[in-house]
Amino acid sequence: MLFIPGNNPGMLRDCHIYGADCIMLDLEDSVSIYEKDSARFLVYHALRTLDYGDVEILVRINSLQDGGVADLEAIVPLGKAIIRLPKTETPEDVLACEREIARIDAAHGLEVGSTGMMAAIESAEGVLNALAIARSSSRLIGLALGAEDYVTDLKTTRSVDGTELFFGRSMILHAARAAGIAAIDCVYSNVNDEDGLVQQTKLIHTMGFDGKSIINPRQIEPVHRVFTPTQKDIDQAVAIICALEEARAKGSGVISLNGKMVDRPIVLRAVYQLELARAAGVWSDPDLVIPQL
């Protein structure tokens, strides 16, 4: 998820060409308090006019008390962006935003519920309420960790190995999984430290996150490199799916591959690997039907 400052016309124009899976147009922290109106007009017209192709678009609004309602009035009727809430601390924060979106949906004749939401958790209270937040609205498609505010709230700072984030990341990931929505990790702010970025991305990939937030197009390739299944992963997943099909054809309830039993969690992981590989554009086999489990 590539963060783009909402008041920068050049970045708004070019942001979709670098290969990010998802773009977040920011009306909040990256915009000066004196330019909130300007960014709102600019993002509104960019969304109305520019063709961002298949890239998923989010708009990070300001808090409802500080211009967020005006942001929603501009963005929601366009029906082109998921709304990202900043600094979500309680389920009521989500519900308050949802009420505003529903009001705007209805006023513009949009199908109520058609605008998705993502909640960014950026405080100790938000982390401790993560599960309640994740389950608070059917519009929520994911949770995201905002690390800078979170570590400040914890009275600590960011470290290279991310020790200070481990509890927050774990809470957000578990809450998202329990609610069946996505979990997106925070940004790695030092764009000149690719090794640090890769180290952090490997950690959150291993933990189970669905993706990582980034602040520069240079960070797209290293993050994709970590998340894209290797050829070995793909070969293994294909072999598992083939073994599943073979067992089904024989009417056998037991699947084995190279003498080892393959049970349901292993098949689920294989399916996920192939879906990821296909989305990354590194695998395609029209003859292999990925089972819906």
């Binding site: 016309p9 124009r13 109106d37 300007s38 007009f41 600019l42 509104y44 960019a46 006019t49």
Partner: peptide, 17 residues
């Protein structure tokens, strides 16, 4: 070298201000 959408946004912002 602004796009049309940028020109519109900047004019609107200036007028409202």
């Amino acid at each position: 070298g602004a796009l049309d959408c940028t020109i519109r946004a900047r004019v609107e912002t200036a007028v409202y201000r």
